[in-house]
Simulated assay, not measured.
Amino acid sequence: MSERRIRDSYAARATEYTELMGDIAQMDAVDRERIGQWAGGVEGRILDAGCGPGHWTAFLAERGHEAEGIDLVPDFITTARIRFPHVSYRVASLADPGVERGSLGGILAWYSLIHATRGELPALLAEARHALRDGGVLLAGFFDGRDAEPFPHAVTTAHFWSVDGMSRHLEQAGFTVVDSETRVQEGRRPHASVTAVAV
């Protein structure tokens, strides 16, 4: 995974991406429920890692959570600040989130790990663990499939992960997996998400 390639690929389609996927009303109701319930159990600040145009960060903030969004793509951050001026956004990535060690109560990594290869995922999860306090909670959403198998994502190459495979990596990074869910919807790639507590 080249951060430059990912940044440039998303920057080239930032306007299109925002129009197609940048409104919370465009998100699946099941995802809104899942993320809302997860956030309700988080104590402390939440980092939305890979926030894109900022809609999930705003969703959390509007429900009373102290939430900040980070993204590699400056165009996304500019757009998010304009659309949601009451929410904090900045250019950064999960590889270097720019937060103090143990300072976060939660990290939302909703489809922000999908471009990491098998060799790169452990370091990202380790950074997430470092940023979370003991007992902090991570929620990761991703495409369900054969571990690390690449596929031609609409923006740039992405990878599938199984719940078991993602869970193993989380456990190796210092997390305990507490729940997961999967679903298949017509016309979409299979979806999965995992909640894990920092131990």
Rank of each mutant, 00 (worst) to 15 (best):
P85L: 05
V99W: 12
L113I: 04
L47Y: 09
G187V: 04
P190C: 04
T195M: 12
L121S: 04
G136K: 10
L132T: 09
S93D: 02
A80V: 03
A92R: 10
L132F: 09
I46F: 04
D31I: 03
R13W: 07
D23R: 13
W161V: 11
M21K: 13
A61R: 12
A123V: 09
A92G: 02
V137Y: 14
A158P: 02
R13E: 07
P152Y: 01
E66W: 11
I114Y: 07
A80L: 03
H153Y: 14
H55K: 09
A49H: 00
P152D: 14
L108M: 10
R168K: 13
G135H: 11
D48T: 03
R5G: 08
L138M: 10
I35C: 05
G106M: 13
G119E: 15
A140F: 01
T57N: 08
R34K: 06
A67I: 11
T117N: 12
Y17V: 03
G40S: 10
G102C: 00
H153D: 15
P150I: 12
V73G: 01
A95G: 08
E43W: 05
V73N: 07
G119C: 09
L72D: 04
F142Y: 13
A29E: 00
A158M: 05
G36M: 07
M166I: 10
P97I: 06
P152T: 02
I77D: 03
R101P: 12
V197Y: 04
F76V: 04
S167I: 03
A131D: 10
V99C: 13
G22C: 01
I24K: 10
L132Y: 06
Q26F: 10
H130C: 12
G69R: 02
E181W: 02
A192V: 07
G41P: 13
D144P: 14
S9E: 11
D144H: 15
V73P: 00
G44T: 10
G165D: 11
L72F: 05
H191N: 05
E149N: 13
A25D: 15
R7K: 04
D147L: 01
E43S: 12
D96N: 11
A61H: 15
P97H: 00
P152V: 01
R83I: 08
L139P: 06
A58S: 13
A131L: 01
A12N: 05
L60Y: 05
G44V: 10
R83K: 15
T117W: 11
H115K: 09
A131S: 09
G64W: 09
E66M: 05
R188T: 07
R168N: 11
A12G: 06
R4T: 15
P85F: 11
R146G: 14
E186G: 05
M27L: 06
C51H: 02
E16I: 08
M166K: 03
R168G: 10
V137W: 14
P97C: 06
A173H: 04
R5F: 08
G102F: 00
D75R: 10
E68H: 10
G69Q: 03
R118F: 12
P150A: 11
G54I: 05
T156N: 06
L121C: 04
T57D: 08
G98A: 01
E68M: 12
F160Y: 15
L132D: 12
D96I: 00
Q172C: 00
L113S: 07
E66A: 14
E120A: 07
Y10G: 07
H191M: 05
V155C: 10
D147R: 06
Q26W: 03
V178I: 14
G22A: 01
E100T: 12
G44A: 08
